[in-house]
Amino acid sequence: MYLLHGKNITCGYDTDDILSECTVGVEKGKIASIVGPNGAGKSTAMKSIFGLLKIRLGKIFLDNEDITNLLPQERVLKGMGYVPQTNNIFPTLSVQENLEMGAFIQNEDFSDILDYVYDLFPVLKEKRNQQAGELSGGQRQQVAVGRALMTKPKVLMLDEPSAGVSPIVMESLFQKIVEIAQQGTAVLMVEQNAKQALEISDLGFVLNQGKNLYTDTGKALLSNKKVRQAFLGG
């Protein structure tokens, strides 16, 4: 039973469909990755699930509730957190202010979530008063993820979290993602580094040309010969 479920999504720009009848989803407390070659429609799938792109056909469910017609902001209120691939922080705001902006929608006290994020990313607590734009790539990514966590989302969506960071940083970032999932938040992410992503994923979706090619557990996909040859470089 998926917590977040994009069912048979068909969408695209103008008349060209980028996604056709594509289905992705993630269960509570689990990690799901969407992988595939360039132009497979991975990011499009993320954007359409979060409501940044209008879908032509299909439905999106969160916790069995149909959210297909909600605005992105409304989805945030329903319990979705989204980290875009680029421009995902407020560079001249301090780290702490970035996190506060994440909780902007909520009117209640968010100090406990702030503590949670700081526990998760101790380096952010250290640099809480520094401008986010001055941080290193990996630290900025942490700010971005932290910002999305501030609404205590049921599902966290990450668009290429490892883009532009070094392999070592990526590894520790993935470690954090596992921690986040263990705390009960479902994580749905798109990754260019398919191998590493599938290693930590409970579920993997291999997309090609906008269609579901394979859907299986991360382990199964990693051991699937065809997948390895076609998408994981052998």
Binding site: Q73, L77, F90, L93, E97, M101
Partner: peptide
């Protein structure tokens, strides 16, 4: 809060929209 959100908006409009 409003002042910070104003700075956030000027920093990154898209993200500000996503933040509500």
């Amino acid at each position: 809060k409003t002042g910070k959100s104003m700075r956030a908006y000027s920093d990154n409009q898209e993200l500000a929209l996503l933040s509500g």
